[in-house]
Write a protein that binds this DNA or RNA. Structure first.
Length: 107
DNA sequence: CCCATGACTGAAG
DNA sequence: TCTTCAGCCATGG
């Protein structure tokens, strides 16, 4: 298991505060791979085995839970977010602008 | 090395 | 806001 790229992604993902969310692109930029947003998603998929990675807090730039189908249940991702006081309606995170956490700004 | 895949993004209509 | 298209690039066959 190579870890260079994925490890950086996991590292940033783990820094996301509870009740906050971020985008694949924001993480990609932070680890110095601004053009590899897709790879971040790819890494998230591979992170399914790693429970310490809060993949449910990572969504696309519009705040839509595009990766929910990769969780055990279709509703798991949404419920995990709601459990952190994040309102989700029809795969869309509410108040996304307020909840958005940009590692490039916050760190 | 070439090819396909994908949890993305930005631009254009 | 939505759909479509073209870049993007790590990983695996």
């Amino acid at each position: 298991m190579e870890k260079n790229f994925f490890e950086r992604v996991y590292d940033v993902a783990r820094l996301i505060p509870e009740g906050r969310v971020t985008s694949y692109g924001a993480i990609a930029r932070y680890i110095g791979a601004a053009k590899s947003a897709r790879m971040v998603g790819y890494a998230m998929n591979a992170s399914s085995i790693d429970e310490s990675v809060p993949a449910h807090r990572v969504v696309n730039r519009k705040g839509i839970l595009t990766g929910k189908h990769h969780f055990e249940g279709i509703n798991l991702m949404q419920q995990l977010l709601e459990n952190e006081d994040v309102e989700v309606i029809d795969n869309q995170i509410q108040n996304f602008d307020t909840l958005f956490w940009d590692p490039n700004k916050e760190l």
